Amino acid sequence: MKFGDRIKERRTAQKMTLEQLAQATDSSKSYIWELENKNPPRPSAEKLSAIAKALDVTVDYLFGRDEQTLEQAEDKAFYRSYSGLPPETRRQLREMAKILGTKKPE
């Protein structure tokens, strides 16, 4: 899958419009459209990082440079967000994860 296809797939899966992704990444709607539809795209590192963050994946996932699954990319993006949280919030999330991990499936 190409870079632009991955952006579009993630954007539509999250029910984001071109305009919403553009706003989230401080880009123009036409710029996002070009990334999704032109080949080869030439985004800056700053824009790549912003797009990956807005779509809750990694830059590597968008480029398909490794064999990273979508789930693995989402986990890495979550950890990136988690790492930036205050210590008390991280502690609370760890406690919640323990509780959820011991819950029996219905």
Rank of each mutant, 00 (worst) to 15 (best):
67 E>A: 08
79 Y>C: 01
85 L>F: 13
24 A>N: 05
74 E>R: 05
85 L>G: 05
56 D>E: 13
58 T>C: 12
58 T>F: 08
80 R>D: 09
64 G>E: 00
78 F>K: 03
87 P>N: 13
35 L>R: 13
37 N>W: 02
59 V>I: 14
37 N>E: 06
61 Y>F: 07
48 L>N: 01
87 P>S: 15
65 R>E: 09
74 E>A: 02
34 E>L: 12
68 Q>P: 09
85 L>C: 05
30 S>V: 07
21 L>G: 06
51 I>P: 08
35 L>F: 07
32 I>G: 00
25 T>P: 13
81 S>P: 04
51 I>N: 10
38 K>T: 09
63 F>V: 00
23 Q>S: 10
39 N>A: 02
65 R>S: 10
59 V>D: 01
58 T>W: 12
30 S>P: 03
44 S>Y: 04
78 F>R: 01
86 P>K: 11
24 A>F: 09
60 D>V: 03
23 Q>P: 03
47 K>N: 06
43 P>R: 14
25 T>I: 14
74 E>C: 00
31 Y>F: 13
71 E>S: 04
33 W>M: 01
19 E>C: 06
66 D>H: 11
53 K>H: 14
53 K>Y: 00
38 K>I: 13
42 R>V: 07
28 S>W: 10
81 S>G: 03
72 Q>T: 12
81 S>A: 08
84 G>L: 15
83 S>T: 09
33 W>D: 09
28 S>E: 12
88 E>C: 05
24 A>H: 00
72 Q>C: 05
62 L>P: 14
86 P>I: 04
23 Q>G: 07
24 A>Y: 03
37 N>C: 08
40 P>F: 03
67 E>V: 05
69 T>H: 03
51 I>S: 02
61 Y>C: 08
48 L>E: 09
46 E>D: 13
68 Q>W: 06
59 V>L: 02
64 G>R: 06
68 Q>V: 14
54 A>K: 09
69 T>W: 15
20 Q>A: 00
58 T>I: 10
22 A>S: 02
53 K>P: 02
76 K>C: 08
35 L>M: 13
19 E>N: 01
27 S>W: 01
82 Y>F: 15
40 P>E: 12
79 Y>P: 01
76 K>D: 10
